[in-house]
Design a protein around this nucleic acid. Structure first.
Length: 463
RNA sequence: GCGGGUGUAGUUCAAUGGUAGAACUUUAGCCUUCCAAGCUAACCACGCGGGUUCGAUUCCCGUCACCCGCUCCA
């Protein structure tokens, strides 16, 4: 029924104070985006909503905030330092780009084990076996160019190898390396989860689709630890929990689906991985949320490399074991985009004079709306009273005050940015102490006493 | 990174080898007063840097950014 293009929605976000191009006055910087006042508020609300359901309201779970910069050994342990760099080669003839290991695997049908090969070995293998470009058949490849997906920088004043550090490519490792700290200080028994929200950085080869894939992004991840075997219960549990959360916040069911990874797709350490995908306008299905059964892979790797014992002593059975872990990981910007795409609508209205005009409305869940309420004096006679009401409302909720233009225009402005409630102060307000609340979605109105506004709004932004 | 396309006010579109017009938006005022009305003003642009030229927004080169295709994933 709704049929808008991705571009339409992006334009609206850019022109209404949600998202700006990064470093715009300097001509921008590729694939960087800044969040304006509304975008920052929406992001904040998404994160609050996640934290509330996944951490605050869940007896088992706790939240942390770990450092972006970590000891580089962490990335040795996880394999990011070795494997996160793709060995890329280009065909000089037709300019196609391949991953050297995949090219060899493809041509040899996997009979050659590239895992053990170094870059030079692969280049030599390609040359000696006269491997041709699958596209154009030429035998003219560039050397391998390493493309490490981790951002590298230096800590301290000296830029040498010993001071190299990396911006984390995922927040997960902050949870794994703090497993013992959290378990001990919070006196946690299995099962329990550690969650966090924070920025991650990946030097993606191909970012794009607006804020869908960027090199700097924010993740909301949880590592849920349980007894080996119990993951058979918890993996589907969290898989469904994440979906329910999205539905509760108003995403359209038809635009959501699970995509379970096939056995061939699974990372070797994973017992199961499911993506929750969202159907974006124009760009269609894209991954929103990954829920993975990571077994004991990460903790074991860290045990090996750190020489620390990360086993859990089960107080009921006195068994010692390395917990299994289920990880729901979601990108904030992607969620942002999904919520906004789902909420965007243009309605055709017929005006009093018979002319038609278009109302842009963002039907965001009130819990997510960047501005909860706009306080509007009906005429300039009510500005003083309206400012008083505004001062009361803004103590509890994100609110704006607007007195410019006629009342209908001000309603429309709020519709376009997704404000669920407009509070209109009129001539009667001073006498009866009440205001008109106008609803974004239905455009209906209700009279509310000023002292009831806090509860009135509060009960409607709950989810 | 490679190939293809695009680049004029905040937005959507014009025009032009002699430095740009409009609509909507925004701001102020009048009028009206519960759904983008009307009137009067104001503000605002040739992505950036070179070259050719007496003169470049226009032609050429480079660069930057965005969009579409090849890889990855939240």
């Amino acid at each position: 029924m709704k049929d808008f293009t991705f571009e339409q929605i992006v334009t609206h976000l850019k022109t209404s104070g949600y998202v700006f191009q990064g470093s715009e006055i300097y001509g921008g910087l590729s694939n960087t985006w800044d969040f304006g006042p509304l975008g920052a508020s929406l992001k904040k609300n998404i994160k609050l909503a996640w934290w509330k359901k996944f951490i605050q309201e869940d007896l088992n779970n706790v939240g942390i905030q770990s450092a972006i910069l970590m000891n580089p050994e962490v990335w040795v342990a996880t394999g990011h330092l070795a494997n996160f760099s793709d060995p890329l080669i280009d065909c000089k003839h037709c300019k196609s780009r391949y991953r050297a290991d995949q090219l060899i695997n493809q041509v040899t049908n996997g009979t050659v084990n590239t895992d053990e090969m170094k870059d030079d070995d692969m280049v030599r293998y390609i040359r000696e076996n006269n491997i041709a470009c699958p596209k154009c058949g030429a035998h003219d490849f560039t050397d391998i160019r390493k493309f490490n997906l981790m951002f590298k920088t230096f800590q301290g004043v000296v830029e040498d190898a010993s001071s190299a550090v990396y911006l984390r490519p995922e927040t997960a490792q902050g949870m794994f390396v703090n497993f013992k700290n959290v378990q001990r200080t919070m006196r946690k028994k299995l099962p329990f989860g550690i969650g966090q929200i924070g920025k991650s950085f990946r030097n993606e080869i191909t970012p794009g689709n607006f804020i869908f894939r960027t090199r700097e992004f924010e993740q909301m991840e949880m590592e849920f630890f349980c007894k080996p075997g119990d993951d058979d219960y918890w993996y589907p549990y969290w898989r469904q929990f994440c979906m329910d959360w999205l539905l509760k916040l108003g995403l359209t069911e038809e635009n959501l689906r699970f995509r379970d990874h096939t056995p061939q797709e699974l990372a070797f350490y994973s017992k199961g991985t499911a993506d929750i995908e969202y159907k974006f306008p124009t760009i269609s299905w894209g991954e929103l949320w990954g829920i993975a059964d990571r077994t004991d892979y990460d903790l074991k790797r860290h045990m090996d490399h750190s020489k620390q014992d990360l086993q859990y002593l089960d107080p009921y059975t006195n068994e010692k074991y390395v917990p299994y872990c289920v990880e729901p990981a979601v990108g904030v910007e992607r969620l942002f985009l999904a919520f906004v795409c789902d909420a965007y609508d243009e309605e055709i209205l017929t005006r009093a004079d018979g002319k038609q005009d278009t109302r842009i409305v963002m039907h965001l869940h009130p819990a997510l709306a960047p501005i909860k309420a706009a306080v509007l004096p009906l005429t300039k006679n009510e500005t003083e009273k309206a400012k008083e009401v505004y001062a009361q409302v803004v103590k509890y909720y994100d609110a704006v005050y607007d007195e410019s233009g006629n009342i209908g225009k001000r309603y429309r402005r709020q519709d376009a940015i997704g404000t669920p409630f407009c509070i209109t102060v009129d001539g009667d307000t001073a006498n009866d102490g009440s205001v008109t609340v106008r609803f974004r979605d239905s455009m209906e109105q209700e009279r509310v006493r000023i002292e009831d506004l806090k509860e009135f709004i509060g009960s409607r932004i709950e989810f």
